[in-house]
Design a protein around this nucleic acid. Structure first.
Lengths: 208, 208
DNA sequence: CCCTAGCCCGAACGAACGTTCGGGTGGGGC
DNA sequence: GCCCCACCCGAACGTTCGTTCGGGCTAGGG
């Protein structure tokens, strides 16, 4: 898949743990973690599969490192929210930062979002992710009562739908294609805040 | 996992292909297709793993049947849209029906949404899904121009975001828990049409 | 009552899996 | 000029995978 690790001049360009992780996560996302073999990783990295064990303990160690990175990025969003701002603005900020984080740490977060909990490592990561979700539900709850939101929306349901939209960016965004990247966080925030029709009752039947 | 196939009276209750598929798809969703072994299926069904081959050709045959069912359900949504209605109403209808279909055929559609394209069967299903997406993008494009949508939204991006929200229902909706099922399609349509704040400019900073 | 057909079983198969092993190689510090 | 160690390799390990095989129950029609 990738060329063997040589510069054009032919000198060795050995891996470190970090750059090997980059390759591995990319393959995990393309084939799914369970669908990826050490042979696949070996081919993508351009080294023998036994060489991988010089840098990491094994396949699951690579997963662990990737998930830690994703979760740390997500929690740092919540830790940098301005508690003085009104809660609807706080929510808009978290939504925007979540999209930006998703785009910046795309492969790592994508891996996190697809976990099924088949091993200890996966279950622990899912647990941390649930803690993140719980803190966001609190924020949405405050925004729905404090803010100027008229209809009586359920915080848990609303959170799931909003972040369903946010997380879905990982299914199609590819950083190498298209410079429309900057438009995406704007589009998400706008759609979450105002929907397709900025004022009520425009669509006569609304799907019924 | 599931009890062996006996009634309380102790008489045999043999499988047919359909009910075996139900069990298999449920395990596929819990562990992921690649993370599921024939041993897992055997245990969940309560029969020996060699018995599975009496009903289907193999593991991939089960996947094929499940994906066909999901795709047929999705395309039937598009085939029953009223072409006379205005395009924004058409879109609202497709969104609502998509959520309803997702909830009704939950395990099958969930399986479809998680495909990575690792085999011929998976790639063919992804191809059919792309055709479905393309027809929806057309519809969104018409709704964004015909309808009373003021801002200049990109149809492709808007489609991805809306159906990202729609499809995310599969990640958390569990039919056995809670009768709030009827609220979900309403909530999705409302959020897509009007967002959190029905009128413009309520959130002063909108996340910046 | 017996025979057939539908449904099931445990045992075994070759292939592919993640990992281990012993050893090779080559460039930077002494 | 030599040695060391970071980095790499192919071969082999035991295990688990999806599938096959040959045969055994049992309900229902004759």
């Amino acid at each position: 898949m990738t060329a063997p690790r040589r510069t054009e001049a032919g000198q060795r360009r050995p891996y470190d743990t970090e750059s090997l992780l980059t390759v591995a996560v990319s393959v995990f996302n393309a084939r799914g973690y369970d669908g990826t073999t050490m042979e696949h990783l070996s081919a993508a990295a351009g080294i023998g599969k036994s060489s991988i064990y010089h840098h990491v303990a094994g396949k699951e160690d690579l997963l662990q490192r990737a998930l830690d990175r994703a979760l740390n990025a997500l929690f740092s969003i919540l830790d940098h929210v301005d508690p003085q701002a009104n809660s609807l603005d706080q929510l808009a900020t978290v939504v925007r930062r979540s999209v930006e984080t998703l785009m910046r740490e795309l492969p790592y977060v994508t891996l996190l979002l697809r976990l099924r909990g088949n091993s200890r490592v996966e279950r622990d990561a899912l647990q941390r992710r649930r803690e993140f979700d719980a803190r966001v539900v609190e924020l949405v709850g405050r925004a729905l009562t404090d803010g100027s939101v008229t209809r009586g929306l359920d915080p848990a349901l609303t959170t799931k739908l909003i972040f369903g939209m946010v997380n879905s960016v990982s299914e199609w965004y590819r950083p190498e294609r298209g410079p429309d990247a900057t438009d995406i966080p704007d589009a998400v925030v706008a759609l979450v805040m105002h929907g397709l029709t900025p004022s009520r009752g425009t669509a006569s039947l609304e799907g019924r």
